[in-house]
Simulated assay, not measured.
Amino acid sequence: MEPANYVVSPAFDSAEAVIFVPGLGGRTTFVERWNDPGQSPVIRRANWSEPMRVPSVDERGAALASLVEASGVTGVVLVGHSMGALVCLEAGRRLGGRLRGVVVICQYPPHRTPLSPLAQLPDRALAEEIEAPPHISGTAALADYARLWRSEYHLLNRYLESDPRPVLDAPMVAVGARDDASSWNAECLGDWSRYTTGRLSVHLVDGGHQVVEEMAAVTLRGWISELTPSAV
C-alpha cells in the first residue's frame, strides 16, 4: 500500500504549475470553475489521498514538496487557503528554486495566529463554526467528521507553537476577507513579510472565511500574475 500523499489534479503536464491547497475539510470542487476553456494558467488542486487520516502541517508540506519534485515540475506557484496556506509555507521551504511564489488566502502568518479554541466545541457547534456543508452537519456522519476536525485543530495549534519559522526566497501575496476573523486585519497580513526575502503584496476582499469558494478566476489569476510576469 502506498503511503498517504497529496493527489494533484489535473495531472502535471508541463514544467510549470499552479497548485491550490485547501484548508480544513479539504473542499476543492469549486476549483473546476477556475479552469474554464481558454483560461490560463490551469489551477490544479491538491487533495490528501486519505481524507480521514490527519497528518501534521509539516508532514503535509513535505509530502507536497516531494510530489512536485518527483513530477519534474521546475516552477510552481502555491495557493493556500486557511491551514492550506501553512502547508504551502512548509512545502515552499523545501522546494528551493522551484518555488515561483505563494498566495495565502484567509490566514494570518503563524506568529499572528492565536491558538484555536474550536477543538473544544460540541459537534454541531463546531460544524456551524467552520461552515460545514449540510450533507455532513445534518447526518449521523457528523460525529466522525467532528473527530477529524478536532484532530486537525490540535495539529494546527501544535504547529503554531513550533519554531523556527520558514523564510521563503520567493514573492508572496496575502489575501484577507473583511468579515473573516482569521484575516480581516491588513497589518497582521503584512507580517507575512517576515516569511519571505521577496516582495509581499496585501489585498482585502469582501466576504468571510470561505470567500475562496466564490472567488472569480480572473481575481486569483491577477494575484498569481503579481508573483511572476509569465503567470506560469
Results as ranks from 00 to 15, higher is better:
91 A>R: 08
128 E>Q: 12
5 N>K: 08
126 L>E: 08
77 V>S: 04
92 G>W: 08
226 E>F: 00
178 R>F: 03
157 N>W: 06
157 N>T: 08
89 L>E: 09
193 S>G: 10
223 W>N: 11
120 Q>P: 00
207 G>C: 04
124 R>A: 13
202 V>K: 08
74 T>S: 12
218 V>W: 06
198 G>E: 09
169 D>A: 09
109 P>H: 09
196 T>M: 07
106 C>I: 01
204 L>P: 00
4 A>C: 04
121 L>P: 04
225 S>P: 00
196 T>S: 13
203 H>A: 13
137 S>L: 13
106 C>M: 06
172 M>L: 15
156 L>E: 05
1 M>S: 12
129 E>N: 07
196 T>D: 08
170 A>R: 08
193 S>P: 01
227 L>F: 04
166 P>N: 13
231 A>G: 10
182 S>E: 11
156 L>T: 05
103 V>Q: 13
130 I>H: 03
64 L>C: 05
120 Q>T: 07
38 G>W: 07
165 R>I: 03
90 E>D: 11
130 I>G: 06
64 L>D: 03
228 T>S: 15
202 V>N: 14
198 G>Q: 12
42 V>C: 14
63 A>V: 02
81 H>K: 08
213 E>F: 14
148 L>Q: 10
44 R>D: 05
70 A>C: 02
42 V>W: 02
23 G>P: 14
22 P>C: 04
8 V>R: 00
116 S>E: 12
131 E>M: 13
194 R>I: 01
112 R>K: 11
153 Y>R: 03
176 G>F: 01
76 V>R: 05
61 G>M: 05
175 V>C: 09
174 A>N: 02
75 G>M: 02
36 D>V: 13
123 D>I: 04
98 R>H: 10
156 L>R: 07
69 E>R: 14
91 A>F: 04
229 P>N: 06
216 A>L: 14
82 S>C: 15
26 G>E: 02
168 L>P: 09
196 T>Y: 04
134 P>Q: 03
93 R>V: 06
107 Q>S: 14
210 Q>C: 14
205 V>H: 11
160 L>G: 03
75 G>Q: 10
